[in-house]
Structures are given as structure tokens and as C-alpha cells.
Design a protein around this nucleic acid. Structure first.
Lengths: 234, 234
DNA sequence: GCATGTGAACACATTCACAGCA
DNA sequence: TGCTGTGAATGTGTTCACATGC
């Protein structure tokens, strides 16, 4: 704890806790909106309130990025925005392949979040002959057997699984074989990660069930004066 | 620590930690699959391995439900399944209203997870005249102005927001006013919860960005022999 | 013998509170 | 004075390890 540049060098390659990583996209969006409105500076309290987190938590989150806010002033919005982008490895080109051209696949392919900030849907893959050859939001639907070609040609590093549950494990395996390094799986059920591949499971039905849990705890007990505090989760 | 039935009464109304609640749907699905295959008993190690969690964690999770596994044998699958269902307040009827009949709204309305286990899409609401009056997977699309009627008539307790971000806050407000007690918000950005309402924000674009963070940490460093362990997140 | 359920240890994240600096 | 960045305290979840009971 002595040598080198004081702040940046210290935190440059420090491990970032998972909860912090999960909050970064939220900060990013707020900073983007502020930047668009030409807001030059923001304090930790302002940003934290907008994000719905504690100000100390926000400051600690940002300190992981090796940021330099200015005491007495706050954070420089464009600069902070750039640092968050860098931490999330955004800004560079991230071609995505979506496996499964059903309703969810279509919805994701058309969503802004999958077509901005460096993300770009390079292609969708499916096995349904009725889908193969069609174009969704500028991206072609190709047959699953062409997956390797697409991944190699477009240098795809990210895969999204929007197939039925029964196909998910096999599709993840094929994505991994094709060279995709990270997969976002929307199919229900736990899919184990092949070696060297990061798999993130997002289960929309599970989210609904978790919500139910909290709803059931507040709804059937209308006896609490002001009611449950109505905290926002997630 | 003495009176009453030893296990169940003690844990019956204990607070369940949020991470535990988030894992319950996963256990539920596995138990359902085992039950269908007529598997009568399961040990904590087996179930934990299938779910990708530590066995001690699983046992502690289940102990929150006031369960009784049998030492030397394991857990009774049908019985445990029922207890998880009860904890999640499933089994009863949960009518859902989906706000936003775009691609995501359609995908959710058609998904199995939103139409089983007690969940039922009572209606979709939108303001697009081209959508209003159409039927999606057996559910009608009605105008946003009819929200109050639908919620009252169908006793809707759960709302799902699948609108553009710009409309999300207002739609959550209207859902709350209509009497919906819990909302699952898929629109990007933090939506504060009105008093007495639980709001759970699920940001699909953020999931992709989080994935990128981990992908970037493993991809550009192909120097680690066996590579990153490829842990499954989420 | 074998698997549950849980006290105790540990690891981690959040929050407070304040030193230090603009 | 105002706000950042962080040591220290707190709170929470995970994991170990074993007593207990089938």
C-alpha cells in the first residue's frame, strides 16, 4: 500500500463484486440520460436517489472503477459515463447471435437494448423451415447448422438462448463449440456452463413466482396501517 | 425454544431470505420433473447438484419452509414439492394483466411460465387501436382505459409491464391505482414502487451488459490453461 | 450407516461516519 | 462548506462440521 499512482492504479484491476456489476447498467442508463440533457456534474446522493440505492453504496461501487469524483463538486458526467462503459466493456462491437426465432427471440432481436451500445444482432438461428430465411429487424434467420459459420464470420462472442427448455442444453453446447464465450439463457431450468464459457440463466417465469411470494405476503394482510413499505426489488 | 411442534411451527412464519426465495422456483421445477418421473425421494446432495448450489445451502433454504426431510433417507418429493408451492403461494389462482401488447408482451402471454402453476393471463392492455380487440393466446387485448374494469372483474393481483420505457412509470401508477398489488417491470430503468405495491424490475438489456462484463474478463485472456472455470451465474 | 437440520465460523456486501481535499 | 473516498461497524448469506435421529 504505497507505490504507484494513488487512486487509479490501485483500483484498476481490482475485482468488482457481483452486486456492483449488476448495478452498473443502471448507473450507465442514468448517466446517459443526464449526458443527453447536458448535465455536467452529479453528486453521489443525486445519482444514488435516481437509482434507488444508498449513496455510500454508490460511492463504493464507483470507487471500484478507479474513478475520480471531485470532493465538493461531484462526478463529471461524461467522464463517469465513459468509465462505466469501459468497466462493462461496452463501446466495442459485440455481435450477438440469438438462438430461437420464436416470439421471445423476435422481441429481443427488435429491442433497443440488444441493438445499441455496441450490441448488434448478427443473426438468429432456428430449425423451423418456416423461419429460416426470414429477416427480423435487419437480421437474417439461418438454420442451426450454419451456426459455426455465422459465429466465425461475424466474430460472435455472445449467444442468447430463447428456445424451448428441451433444446436449451444442446443449443448451449453448440454455441460453446462454435466458439461463443458467453451465453444468456432465457430457457427455464439450470443449464450448466461448458468449460471456459460463462452462462447466465434468466428465468422469466421464476421472476413471476418470486413476485408472487412478496405479493402474497402483503395482499392477504391488509391490516398493516400504511401497508408494506412497497420496496422495489431487483 | 421448547413448546409446540418441533420443526414446522418454529419455521412456519420465519422470514425467508431473498436469495432463498429466488432459488425456490428452481427447486420447484426440478421437483416437478422428478415427480413426473415417479421419483419418490431425493437427497439434499442430489437436488443441490441438479440446481447447481451447495448442499448445505439447499438444506438451509428448505429448513426455512419448515420442511421435514427424513434423516438417512432424504426428502419426500411430492411432499416437498407441495411445500415449495405453498411457500411461493402457488396453487391458487393468479390472474395476470400484461401492459404492452408488443413483441415482448406477446411472448410473455404465450409463454408456459405465465400460463401454468396458477398463473393465467387475464388480459393485455395497450393504447394502440390496431392491437385493441385482438386475441393473444386466448387473452383479449383491451384499451388501457379499461384497466380498472379488468382488474376488478378478474381480481387481478399481478401486473406485468412490457411497454416502452417512456410509458413504464405512468403504467405502474395506473396499475397501482387499479388495485394491482405487485408488478413485474420489464421496461428499462428504475421504477419506484407506489406505497403498498411491490415492484420488481427485470432489465433484459442489463443482463446482457452484465454478461459482457464477465465475457470480456475471460475472452481476452486465453492464457489460463483450462480457462476460466465457467461458473454459471444467476 | 447415512442424511437431515443447525450452531458456529466465515465471507461478503451494505451502511455509517469521518478524514481529507476542492 | 460540501462532497468524495474509505476505515470500521454492522448486517446478511454461505459454508463447514457435527450432533441428532431414522
Amino acid at each position: 500500500m504505497s507505490v504507484g499512482r494513488p487512486s487509479s492504479a490501485k483500483a484498476r484491476r481490482a475485482r468488482i463484486p457481483e452486486p456492483t456489476v449488476a448495478r452498473l447498467p443502471q448507473y450507465r442508463r442514468l448517466l446517459e440520460a443526464m449526458d443527453d440533457r447536458r448535465i455536467a456534474t452529479v453528486s453521489s446522493v443525486e445519482l444514488a436517489d435516481a437509482a434507488g440505492v444508498n449513496a455510500a453504496t454508490l460511492r463504493r461501487d464507483l470507487s471500484c472503477l478507479g474513478t475520480c469524483g471531485t470532493p465538493g463538486t461531484g462526478y463529471d458526467v461524461p467522464r463517469l459515463r465513459e468509465m462505466v462503459d469501459r468497466a462493462l466493456a461496452l463501446g466495442r462491437d459485440w455481435p450477438v447471435v440469438i438462438a430461437g426465432a420464436g416470439y421471445l427471440g423476435h422481441a429481443l432481436a427488435r429491442s433497443r437494448g440488444f441493438n445499441s451500445g455496441g450490441f448488434r444482432v448478427a443473426a438468429l438461428v432456428d430449425i423451423d423451415p418456416a423461419q429460416v430465411g426470414t429477416v427480423v429487424a435487419g437480421a437474417v434467420v439461418v438454420h442451426l447448422d450454419e451456426l459455426d459459420d455465422v459465429v466465425r464470420r461475424e466474430r460472435v462472442a455472445l449467444g442468447v438462448v430463447a428456445t424451448p427448455a428441451s433444446a436449451a442444453a444442446e443449443v448451449v453446447r453448440r454455441l460453446a463449440t462454435a466458439g461463443v464465450g458467453a451465453v444468456l439463457n432465457f430457457a427455464p431450468g439450470f443449464v450448466a456452463a461448458p468449460p471456459g464459457v460463462t452462462v447466465r440463466n434468466v428465468d422469466l417465469a421464476a421472476e413471476l413466482q418470486v413476485l408472487t411470494f412478496y405479493a402474497a405476503r402483503s395482499v392477504p394482510s391488509p391490516t398493516d396501517g400504511a401497508g408494506a413499505p412497497g420496496r422495489a426489488l431487483g
